[in-house]
Nucleic acid binder design. Structure first.
Length: 425
RNA sequence: GCGGAAGUAGCUCAGUUGGUAGAGCACCUGGUUGUGGCCCAGGCGGCCGUGGGUUCAAGUCCCAUCUUUCGCCCCA
C-alpha cells in the first residue's frame, strides 16, 4: 500500500515546537491587549483582487507566489499570502472607521505563498500581525515598534537589529522614483545584475536592496531617498526617531530598506537576526497611509507590522516537556480494569498521567514508566489475587510502599504526606 | 523558475578499487541487580527512493525520474 504524503512546504508542528507556537500566541494576546489591541480573525480565503489592489499587481507575491483558484461564477479566490489586506477589507466591511477614530487590531494564523521552501520559509507559514488604523501621528509608528519589541522580550527574544527607513509619501515618492529610474537608465546596460536590470524598469526602488555587491556599489551614487522627501515626510520620520530615542531604543538607519509590498509609505522597519540562516528578517512593517482608500474605504492612515512565527521559533529556547504526575501499570491482565479506573479518579482530581496499554512483561512496563518521566509509578494488582493492592513506587529514589486499592486515592491526593511517609521507610 | 547537497532497519547514520546487508538508539525476550532504572546476552526488523543501463556480479559505476534539504530570487 502506498503511503500518503505531505504537501511540499507545509509542516506538521509537533512538540516541543507546538508549545512554542502556543506560548507565542499567548504572549501576543497578553502584550497587545496592554496596548489596547483587540483580536480580529479574518478568513483564509479572499477574492484575489484584494491582494492585487493592496500588495500590488506587479509584486512577486501576487504574480508568482499566490495560491489562486477558481471560485466559481467567474470570481478568482486566493489563499491569503499576508494578513494586512484582509484586515483592511474587514475594517471597511464593518464600517469601523465610522464607529471609532482609531482601530487597534491584531490577527494571527497561517498564510500561504508558493515559494521554494528553505530554513525559515514554508509555503504555509504563520504570522502575528498588528494594525493601527486612523492615526497619522508618528506616535503610532513609535508605539508599534515599542509594542513589537515588548512582545519579543516577553517570549525571550532579544538582540535583534532594528532597521529603519522612510520611503516618502504619495507626493514625494513618485518624484524620487522617477529620478532613480533616470539614474539607473544612465548606467551601462550590463552593469547591473540581470535581476536589477529588470527591476530598474518595474520597481526601481528594489534595486537599492539588491544583495549583489556590484549593484550595491553602483547605487552608492544614486540619488538619496532621504534627500528627495518632502518636508512633511522628513519631520514625520524625525519625530518617530525622537520617540524611539526617548525610550533608548537602538536602531540602524538603512536607506536600502525597501519593502516589497507596494502599500508602504513613510516609516518602514525590519527586525533582523544573524542566527537563523538566510531568511533573516524576523519581523517587518511600516506605514501605509493610502491603502484603505485604495480599497474603496475611507481615507484613513495606518501603520502595522507582521512577524513570522516559524522564524521566531528558531530563536526561542526549547521548552521543557511537561512531567506527568503518575504512570500506571497493571501487573496482570486481570488488573487492567482497576488500573484504568484508578487513573481516571486521579485525573478527576487534576493529576495528570497515563496508563500503560501493553500486555508485555512487568519489567518492560517498568522501563516504559521510567521513560515517561513520571514521578510516581502505580503498579496495580501485584500482591496476589485476593486483595487488590497497589504498589506506589517513587521513581526518583526507588522507594516503594503498598496499600489496598481503597486507600490509594487518598494517599496519592495527599502527595506531600505520602512523600514524607515514603522517605521515612 | 535556477543552483548545491542528500535519499540504506521505525530513528541517526556507516558501507573500502563493484563480490552474501552493518552499527548505535528504539522495541520484544531472557539474565543480573534492593532504584523492576543501569548493565549483559539474544531476538525483531531492509525492493539500499523509483525506473532503466553497464557487468559473471551493482547499495557502490552511468542515465533518467521522484522526494527531502540548504541557498538564489522573494518575503516575515
Amino acid at each position: 500500500m502506498s503511503r500518503v504524503t505531505r504537501i511540499k512546504g507545509v509542516a506538521d508542528i509537533f512538540p516541543p515546537d507546538s508549545a512554542l507556537f502556543t506560548s507565542m500566541e499567548a504572549a501576543a494576546r497578553v502584550v497587545f491587549s496592554r496596548f489596547g489591541f483587540r483580536e480580529l480573525r479574518t478568513p483564509l480565503l479572499e477574492f484575489s483582487e484584494l491582494y492585487a489592489r493592496s500588495i500590488g499587481a506587479e509584486t512577486d507575491v501576487v504574480q508568482k507566489e499566490m495560491y489562486v483558484f477558481d471560485g466559481g461564477k467567474g470570481r478568482s479566490f486566493a489563499l491569503r499570502p499576508e494578513a494586512t489586506a484582509g484586515v483592511m477589507r474587514a475594517y471597511i466591511d464593518a464600517g469601523l472607521g465610522a464607529k471609532e477614530s482609531v482601530s487597534r487590531l491584531f490577527t494571527l494564523g497561517p498564510m500561504f505563498r508558493h515559494e521554494r521552501p528553505q530554513l525559515g520559509r514554508m509555503r504555509q507559514f504563520h504570522q502575528i500581525n498588528c494594525e493601527c488604523l486612523g492615526s497619522g501621528s508618528p506616535v503610532a509608528d513609535a508605539e508599534m515598534i515599542v509594542m513589537l519589541l515588548q512582545f519579543l522580550r516577553e517570549i525571550g527574544i532579544n538582540g535583534l537589529t532594528l532597521k529603519l527607513n522612510s520611503l516618502g509619501c504619495a507626493d514625494c515618492r513618485p518624484r524620487y522614483r522617477a529620478a532613480l529610474g533616470a539614474f539607473l537608465a544612465s548606467l551601462d546596460a550590463d552593469a547591473l545584475c540581470p535581476d536589477c536590470a529588470r527591476r530598474a524598469g518595474t520597481n526601481p526602488l528594489r534595486v537599492l536592496d539588491c544583495k549583489v555587491s556590484a549593484c550595491r556599489e553602483l547605487t552608492l551614487n544614486a540619488p538619496s531617498l532621504a534627500d528627495a522627501q518632502c518636508s512633511v515626510c522628513k519631520s514625520h520620520f524625525a519625530a518617530v526617531l525622537d520617540f524611539l530615542r526617548a525610550r533608548s531604543i537602538d536602531y540602524e538607519l538603512d536607506h536600502r530598506l525597501v519593502r516589497g509590498l507596494d502599500y508602504y509609505c513613510r516609516t518602514t522597519f525590519e527586525l533582523v537576526s544573524g542566527a537563523i540562516g538566510a531568511q533573516s528578517a524576523v519581523a517587518g512593517g511600516g506605514r501605509y497611509d493610502g491603502l484603505v482608500r485604495n480599497l474603496g474605504g475611507p481615507d484613513v492612515p495606518g501603520v502595522g507590522f507582521a512577524c513570522g512565527m516559524e522564524r521566531l521559533a528558531l530563536l526561542m529556547g526549547k521548552p521543557d516537556a511537561p512531567v506527568p504526575d503518575f504512570f500506571i501499570v497493571a501487573a496482570c491482565a486481570d488488573a487492567q480494569k482497576q488500573a484504568f479506573s484508578l487513573a481516571q479518579e486521579l485525573r478527576d482530581a487534576n493529576f495528570h498521567g497515563t496508563v500503560a496499554f501493553s500486555v508485555v512483561s512487568l519489567k518492560s512496563l517498568m522501563r516504559q514508566a521510567h521513560k515517561s518521566g513520571a514521578r510516581w509509578c502505580l503498579i496495580v494488582g501485584q500482591n496476589g489475587a485476593d486483595a487488590p493492592a497497589v504498589t506506589i513506587k517513587n521513581m526518583t529514589d526507588g522507594s516503594q510502599t503498598s496499600a489496598p486499592m481503597s486507600e490509594i486515592f487518598s494517599l496519592f491526593s495527599h502527595k506531600r504526606e505520602f512523600e514524607h511517609a515514603s522517605t521515612q521507610r
